[in-house]
Every structure is written in structure tokens, then in C-alpha cells.
Design a protein around this nucleic acid. Structure first.
Lengths: 215, 215
DNA sequence: ACCTGAACACCGTTCAAGT
DNA sequence: ACCTGAACACCGTTCAAGT
């Protein structure tokens, strides 16, 4: 268990993010990072014990770019700004986003975002016992929706609804048939993100309201 | 653009799923699949054009294991059964779950799950124009929550809340400090999944109700 | 304190060939 | 129709050594 160096960590994370942004997550190898820094791959192991540990740090660096909203904002604004902040970061580094779902969110930056959300939910009047659950629901939505969009789970444009339905007969897909008129127009994902978030905030409000009447 | 063989595809997908379940997604290599089938790695390229294409098929095979609820159920039951079905599959093959967020959901199995959800939302009385959005919200939640749990994003037990807070001073984390009493007890993820799903169904109900009064 | 070089056990994939 | 074998350009990581 050697002691690790700190000095060039920021440089390493910058190089890693740049590679991921330019050539995708698969191209983000220790050898690529080393080459970009003009150093041997083995030099990196003085700073991180493994690639896995380096990726944790890359994720932390990413989440650190989400701005924490200033004090004095309404709770809805706080939640919206955090969600949009995550979305903005994700759009800049789409290929790194899968890491969020794949490793524990324990970096200081991640914990600060969680804490700001806790405060907002408490300010909204949500029952304290439910606040951690609601934070998990909101963050799961924000990350999941953005990741679905940028990774193509929602359909990446190259494969339109017609092509999807073509694999099965219309009789097997009554739902799609009913909604045919709504499935052809393209979707504005930013808009949908905002609408979903509003609906989820309504849900928080309703939980807060029913907690007030219960006491 | 050669013509691909079909014959041994099921065998290949079985081998791939078994490897992923036993040794994780990183161990799921073409060479490992080939070895398990007693064949040369290159033999696989007669069935799939690339590893990427094979992974798409693995995902399709996984989603095909989600049972489609029988006709005659209430819309809430349909949505719940689909969500629990996804969760059950995910728990059996946790390491494959990240693929859901990483590639388009265009397999016949995926489309059938989406269609069943469309039908349930229409039966609930949700405005047709909002049904695709609500389906995306529900599936994003179901996959995201399950993936967060099994991949450790929600905290994997080895790193408790105390350790998370220890990285920052209590003054920097007023939200965590307020909720201290609620953050120490362990969470039953299955229970939380059910509660969240109920809340989301309430949201659908409310949208349906306000659509009724608007007309 | 910081970095290198050679080596090991792996990858996905191409190409030409074999039955 | 189905599979093999050798080869290429990659991986992460260990170990011993160099300044």
C-alpha cells in the first residue's frame, strides 16, 4: 500500500476528460492518457493505484463542475438548477456519463450536490424521513434521462419509430398503433426534461402538503 | 456485408450471459464466449459482425425474459408487473444492466414492453400526447433505480454515510446534519422501489384527472 | 520523489485457408 | 456452410531498475 502522489492529478484528469470527449470512453486507456501527457503509462500508477481508481477521480472531477446554487433561491429553483447543471456537464462529456451509474457517488463534489438537494427538499416541507428517498428519485431521473438521451436509448434518430414497429406486426403493438400520430414528430429532450422535472416537483409538493394536513 | 448465420445464436447468448453473471461484464470477451462454446473466437464472427452487435443481442435476450402481463389487469398492476419484471431480470444479471442505458432499446422484446406500458397509460386516461413521455419517465426510473442499487451508486454497504460525511466538515453539509437520524438506518431497496413506483403512478393518475376536467 | 523499460497475460478483429 | 490459425495493433498491470 504505497503512498500516492498528488502533484499531477489535475493534469491527469484533464487529459482523461479530453480523450473521452474527443474519442469516446473506449479510447480512454491508461496508455492514451500517458501518451497525451508525454509520459510512460507506468508513471500514472504513482498517482492512482489502478485505472478504476482513476475513473472514480474522473467522475468526481466531472461532478465538481456542477455549480451549487446560491443561497436565497426557492427550493424548486435549487432543484432545477442542480438538474440543469448536471445536464449541462453531461452534454459536454456524454461518454463519461455511464460512469455515474456504475460507481458509488462518494466524491466530495457528489456529496455537496446531494446535500443541496436535501436542503431544498426540507425547505419544500417534505417529511424528513422521505427526503433521502426523494433525492435518490430525483437524481436517478436526472442522470437516467440525460444518459438515455445522449446514449441513444430514446432512439438516436437513425432508427425512427417506423423501423421499430416494422419488426413486429401492428396487431402485436396496439399501443403504438393508437399513438401513431404522436410517435412520428421529433422530441425536444431538453423540453421533456423540464416537463418531467416539473411533474416530479409537483409530486414533492403534494407529499409536503399531505404531511402538513396529517399533523 | 456477408450474410450471417442464425443457428447457434441462442447458444452464444447463453454463454455470454453465463460469463457476465459469473465473472462480470469485463470478463465478457469474444474469446471467453468462444472458449466456453469450445470454438475459436473467429467462429463467432459468422453470427455477429462485431462484439458490439453481439452485446445488442445479449441485451435483447435479457429484456425478452420480462413477462408481458396477461390481459384484464388494471393499468397500475400492468405497470407494476413490468417494473418488477425488469427488476427481477436485473437482479439475476446485474452486470449486464448498464447495457440498457448504453444502447438503443430496439429489440422486439424491448418494443413489446414499451407497447404494454403505452396501453396501460392509455387505460389510465393519460393524455395520449403525454404517453410516450410518461413511458420514458417510468422506464428511466425503473432501470435507473435498479442499476443504482446493484452497481453501488446508492452506497454499497462498505462505505457508510459517516464515511461520506467525513470528507467534508458538518458545516458544509447542513442537509446531512439535519437528516442525521434518518441517514444511518439501512434502506430496503425493494421497498423504496415500490414506494417510488406508487408515487409515479399517482402522478399519472393526477395528469389523467386534470385532463378529464379540462375537456 | 519521480519516472522508465521490458515483460506477461490479455483484448477485438482482419485475412487467407481448410473441410 | 462452418470453422481454424496466424497475425496485428491494442489493453491493464507487475517487477526491477534508473536519476
Amino acid at each position: 500500500m504505497r503512498k500516492l502522489k498528488e502533484s499531477r492529478r489535475p493534469e491527469i484528469l484533464d487529459a482523461a476528460l479530453a480523450i473521452a470527449a474527443e474519442r469516446g470512453l473506449d479510447a480512454l486507456s491508461m496508455r492514451a492518457v500517458a501518451q497525451r501527457m508525454g509520459v510512460t503509462p507506468m508513471a500514472l500508477y504513482g498517482y492512482y493505484r489502478s485505472k478504476d481508481e482513476m475513473l472514480d477521480a474522473v467522475l468526481g472531477r466531472l461532478l465538481a463542475e456542477i455549480p451549487i446554487p446560491p443561497a436565497g433561491l426557492g427550493w424548486r429553483e435549487v432543484i432545477e438548477q442542480l438538474a440543469y447543471g448536471l445536464r449541462a456537464v453531461a452534454v459536454r462529456y456524454p461518454s463519461v456519463l455511464p460512469l455515474v451509474f456504475t460507481r458509488p457517488a462518494i466524491s466530495p463534489a457528489a456529496v455537496r450536490v446531494v446535500d443541496a438537494t436535501y436542503q431544498a427538499l426540507l425547505a419544500a416541507g417534505a417529511p424528513p424521513a422521505q427526503v433521502p428517498r426523494l433525492e435518490r428519485m430525483l437524481s436517478t431521473f436526472a442522470v437516467g434521462h440525460t444518459l438515455s438521451e445522449v446514449s441513444g436509448r430514446f432512439g438516436d434518430g437513425t432508427l425512427d419509430p417506423q423501423a421499430r414497429r416494422a419488426q413486429l406486426t401492428p396487431e402485436q403493438l396496439p399501443g403504438h398503433t393508437c399513438l401513431a400520430s404522436h410517435l412520428d414528430n421529433p422530441v425536444d429532450w431538453t423540453d421533456e426534461f423540464r416537463t418531467d422535472l416539473r411533474d416530479l416537483c409537483e409530486l414533492v409538493e403534494r407529499l409536503a402538503a399531505s404531511a402538513r394536513t396529517a399533523t
